[in-house]
Structures are given as C-alpha cells and as structure tokens.
Design a protein around this nucleic acid. Structure first.
Lengths: 252, 252
DNA sequence: CCTATTTGTCTATATTAATATACAAATAGC
DNA sequence: GCTATTTGTATATTAATATAGACAAATAGG
C-alpha cells in the first residue's frame, strides 16, 4: 500500500526499471524482436554502443551485457573499430542425392568460395575402405579443403578419392579451381551422394582456426559417401560445418 | 565464452537464478499460475511462508516479496497466526431490473448475510427528492446496512424509503431480517430497479471500517432508484461496494 | 602514417536483490 | 489465560545489477 507502482512504466525507451526483469535482459529481448521483425536485417549494422545506451537510457556497460548475450547466442557479431552487425542467416544446406556446395550457396544468393589446403596420397585406413567398398590399403587421394559463403568460412573437410577411379584429380582441381568441374572433366559429372551421417561436437583447435570460430563453438560432422552414376563409390568425405552458420536440411 | 550458462537451469524448484528475472517475480508468477490452473482454489490456504521458502529454495524475505506482489494485486490475503489464503473470486453482481443481493450471492454458491446499523426518519434532501420524484422535504425512512457473502462484507449502503409508501418497514425489516421479505409483507414483492448510476473512489474511513478494507482500497459507489410494479419510485439507495470483492455486471 | 571512430577491458562505486537472525503481534486450540 | 503457530517487522550482511570514467586495441579513411 502506498508504494509507487512503476512495474509497467517504460519512460519511452521500452525498458522498465524495478520490474523484476533486469535491464540487460529487456534490451536483449528488444533487439532480438527488432531482428525478428525485420527492422534489423541480416548483415545490417547496429547503432554504436554509445547510441544504443543512450536510446535505451542505460549505461554503456549495461547495454554491452545485452549485446554480450546476443553475441553468445550468435545473433550478432562485433568487431572493434567497425561496429556490431546482425549475423547473416545460416546457410540452408539441403542434403540430397545431388548436393553441390557451390550450387547451394549460389541458390541462397551468396557467393561461394573456398581454398585448398593440401592434397596427398595415402593408403586407405580400415573404416574408410569399408565405406568405399575397396580393399584395406588401396591408394587414396586425400584433399583438405575449406569452403566459404560470402567470404565467411562455412565448412572444412577432408575428401578421400579412390585414386584409380579418378586419375590426375589433384591437377584438375588445381586447374579448374573446383571439384565439381574437375570431376566433370573426368566424366564423373553426375556423381551422387550415396549415404550421409551427421553428428556434432565442440570444434577443436584446427577447426576453430580454419573456420574462424571462437572457443566453445560447435561443428556438425558430416560423413558422406559419393558414387558415380552406377552407384560405384568414388569419394568419402568428412566435413565439419560451423553449426551456427549452417542449417542442414534433410528432406524425407 | 566459457561462462557457465545457467540461464535455463531450475534446480528442480522452478526458479532460475541469474536468469535476468528476479526470484520474487518468478515465484509470484509461479503461484499465480497455480491459482489459474486451479491447483490452488479460491479460499484455499497456501503453505506457510517457511514451507514455501523452502520449496522454492529461497529466503523467507524473498518469498515474502513475491507474496507482497500478489497481496498488492489482491490475489491472496494473509492474516497473522492464520496463514495466507487465495482470495475468493469477486462476486459477480448482475445489475438488472430484478436485482436482489441475497439471490445474487446465493446463486454464486455463497452464503448471504448482513447486519443493520441504524434506521431513522429524516426529510428528503434536494437531490434525493428529485430522484424519487417527490417534493423536497418529504419524510423518508433512512436505513444503514452492511451486506456480506460468506461472512465477508461486500457492500455498505444507505437506503432511503418514501415513508408513506411503506409503513412500518423498519419493524418488518427487524422482524424478518430481510428487506426483500419486509417489502413482500407490504405487498411490494416485485419492486424493480428503475435506474442505476455507478462511479468509484477511494474508500473513506467509515467505509474501510464497515467493509474491513485496508487503506488505499477502492469502493464503487452505486446509486439506484427502485420502484413498485407501476414504476412508482419507492426507494433510493447509495451503496458502496468493495471493488476488489465485487464485479458489477451490466448486460445490455 | 596519422587520426577519428568504435569495440574491448579495467577499476571503482552506487543501487537493488537476496540472505541471515531475531523478535514482535495476531491467531487458534487447549 | 497459556502456548504453539504463523504472519509482520527490523537490522545487518552478502551477492548481483547498474553506473561512472578512463584507457587500450582494432578498424576505416584520408
């Protein structure tokens, strides 16, 4: 009785003090709502922290805590000197019989890219030989690769090719700059995915470097077997997708 | 990064610490939910504060703040030595041509009651005479009354009767204990409401005493004119309803 | 290279939320 | 009337929120 009830007062900035909900939480929810409503588009730059703090009528530290929550959630991303940006929506990566990275990225209106890290020949280890239905120890061509969308690394992977089923692949890949086109040159244009397995775990040191991930982020590990038109296994892939940049879609 | 995320942890008691929502608010909402779901019926007694504090895993003061919010909202009511109780749902008081307090209370499954405070004769003041369509100064019988539902005072009111239209009313009321029955004895059984006016304000000292209201509570002031079967005004009433115990319903 | 802008980090302080004890006051039951 | 129970109130302490100011570090733009 007689207490001032300010539980629903918002002083025009949308945040209510003494409401039982902390300011940083209210601000984080407000910004999330703006993004959800489309008033802040993916890739858009947020006002500076100083501006936002003034708009919400709080101290910059309080505002930063709100941004910290959103950063943890992977909703926004900040870089010193540049500003804070709404993260691009995750890539929708549909897994089907004909799954081509560059096609998927293009169809989402983003620029596919990537780089080759290494290629070498090695005998097939037990588990991979099993998947490729070849004898243990058969010579494989191993390629390490990172792929990007709009310059953002999305997935790093290791590809093992059955060497005598695709001769000179490494040179063709280097020449064409594309696995798809290299395989086309070998008459394996319509290779198809035969099997896919998905799991997920914390990114390790190497993956964090390749994918430019902060510590504690998750990768989805996708193993796939690809074959030629006659369903003869040609390639085994173990890819690690940055989980907060990709959504795998499996239609069934 | 690397921070312990306990934002959704609830340690089994339903309250999350460090979630950005204060414990008292979470507890208040939890109890409100229990009442809404019917797991705590109107009139039911809550566990003691000590028990609730233990159940939610908080200090008694924290719990009391939650109960304080609910008390402010008029959802619960506490009395020292007895306990804390879910408030009875407000009486739904339908205002129509045939409005009888006892009938309304009974139909809500509650026990009607009340007591007479005083009765005296006095000349009609200007405003009341106008409403009753009688000459200024006509003799009126004035009755002060308090009515209850399940022993809880709901309304206090002053009734003015046109004295020569209902002789010996005060004796009949005292004899029968009911205005309705007294009027029936006078052949005015089917008196009807002719007009109703509603306003509201803070309860004054007298009303707080009569209705057992804490300071700061609101009363609805209902003025009505009742007449006999031929719509001849018999009675003018000025009632003050405890706003948090009654909901007036006007169908139209 | 230099400068302005912007995010990142640090330290200090005030305010609010939550805890810990203790005891008063009202009620119910004997 | 006495006692146990339960709500009400007071004081002190600790933890979490929020504010204030200062400065480092990265970026962009000339």
């Amino acid at each position: 009785m007689g207490e001032t009830d300010n539980s629903t007062m918002t002083d025009g900035s949308g945040v209510a003090r003494g409401s039982g909900v902390s300011l940083w939480k209210q601000i984080a929810e407000a910004i999330t709502a703006e993004i959800a409503e489309g008033r802040l588009a993916p890739g858009a730059r947020l006002p500076t922290e100083a501006e936002l703090a003034e708009r919400f009528g709080v101290n910059r530290h309080t505002l930063r805590r709100a941004l910290g929550v959103l950063t943890e959630q992977g909703v926004i991303e900040a870089t010193p000197g540049r500003g804070t940006f709404v993260k691009e929506v995750p890539l929708h990566y549909a897994i089907g019989a004909r799954t081509r990275f560059s096609e998927i990225v293009s169809s989402e209106g983003r620029a596919p890219g990537g780089r080759f890290l290494s290629s070498q020949r090695e005998p097939a280890p037990r588990d991979i030989a099993e998947r490729l239905k070849i004898p243990h120890g058969t010579e494989l061509l191993r390629i390490e690769i990172v792929r990007e969308a709009d310059g953002v690394p999305v997935v790093c992977g290791t590809h093992w090719y059955v060497a005598d089923r695709c001769k000179d692949l490494e040179f063709l890949v280097a020449a064409t700059g594309s696995i798809t086109r290299a395989l086309e040159a070998l008459g394996l244009g319509d290779y198809r995915r035969l099997e896919t397995r998905v799991t997920a775990r914390l990114a390790d040191e190497t993956e964090r470097t390749l994918l430019a991930l902060p510590a504690g982020r998750v990768v989805m590990v996708v193993e796939s077997v690809n074959g030629d038109a006659r369903r003869l296994p040609i390639q085994y892939t173990r890819s690690r997708f940055a989980a907060d940049r990709v959504q795998l879609i499996v239609k069934s």
